[in-house]
Nucleic acid binder design. Structure first.
Length: 307
DNA sequence: TAGCAGGAAAATC
DNA sequence: GATTTTCCTGCT
């Protein structure tokens, strides 16, 4: 079906889709193509007008509004996070960037693959598992693939997953897929819990066994922020660590700050991660996740000081 | 070519 | 609790 959406608050399709929160959108000419909930979406933006074309009537205008969180009052959110020079610059530079409400299972699986990787590589891994294990969808005479169901990945062998170029992540993805297929993860409950409880739930152990192998504090924060409406979640990867140390040094404990500034070993220990992310949530408030996404774009665009 | 970047887990202290 | 090593691939 085809429809248009008139925007009444700030939105940038380009910044939103290009900010590394989603991995299945592709820019071809003036259009963006993506596969969401098994539907192909084709979109372009001209000023405050979004033009959409979709492979299924299920993906209608309210679906698109919900997916791009157009109901959120971005102006108020940005006013609440504009603390400090770096964020003020980032907000002006990437004005209209929004946090997408992704499908929860796809988000979890994608960020399990994201460990020790970079955006182009994550995209390749995700496309590979979609092509091999996802249902085909046709749109405008072209073949696309839905993101695979948990059962499809749970039934695949680790060797088959490895053939998709996942490396050691293959066994993590297999484990996570089985946990989800077996109903051990209640995504709707996650969305209802408060941030702390939801984060703990994603990391929890049952009888000494992790519920979700391959899900640490960073991946858990990505899942909560991008798919569970936890706008205060503040994922910290190496880019965020560097930009916090250089632009918000007071948030970073001295030992960690000098380590990040020295350029060696950018990784954080679990305890350092939890303290820093908590400090950032306190500093930026209930929409800290938006602050994180704007800073992430800024850090990547500038290639932040890597000595 | 070797060396590095990049999260999480497991072993170790 | 903190530190160290391993996992794997792509890029330089």
């Amino acid at each position: 079906m085809e429809f248009t959406i008139g925007l009444s608050s700030p939105f940038s399709l380009e910044y939103t889709l290009g900010s590394g929160q989603v991995f299945r959108w592709e820019n071809r000419g003036e259009w963006w193509y993506g596969v969401v909930s098994g539907c192909v979406l084709k979109m372009k933006q001209e000023g405050d007008l979004l033009t959409c074309s979709t492979s299924s009537d299920a993906a209608d205008s309210s679906f698109v509004r919900r997916y791009f969180a157009l109901d959120e009052d971005l102006q108020s959110i940005l006013a609440s996070i504009m603390k400090g020079k770096a964020l003020t610059q980032a907000v002006h530079r990437f004005y209209g960037l929004r946090l997408i409400r992704q499908e929860r299972w796809e988000c979890l699986a994608s960020f399990v693959l994201a460990t020790n990787s970079n955006i182009p590589r994550i995209r390749r891994m995700v496309e590979a598992i979609c092509a091999r294990f996802g249902s085909p969808v046709e749109f405008e005479g072209r073949a696309y693939s839905a993101f695979p169901k948990p059962e499809a990945l749970a039934e695949a062998t680790v060797a088959e997953l490895r053939e998709c170029g996942l490396g050691y992540r293959a066994s993590y993805l297999s484990h996570v897929s089985q946990s989800v297929r077996d109903g051990k993860v209640d995504f709707s409950e996650l969305a209802l819990l408060d941030y702390e409880a939801a984060h703990a739930t994603l990391l929890k152990e049952l009888f000494g066994e992790k519920l979700l192998l391959g899900v640490g504090p960073k991946v858990a924060d990505c899942v909560l922020l991008f798919s569970c409406d936890k706008n205060e979640a503040f994922p910290i990867d190496v880019w965020m660590g560097r930009i916090l140390a250089s632009s918000y040094p007071r948030l970073v404990e001295p030992r960690l700050r000098s380590r990040l500034a020295s350029g060696k070993k950018a990784g954080l220990t679990k305890a350092e991660y939890l303290r820093l992310s908590s400090a950032a949530r306190k500093h930026f408030g209930s929409y800290a996740g938006y602050a994180q996404q704007y800073l992430f774009m800024k850090a990547r665009s500038e290639g932040v000081s890597r000595p």
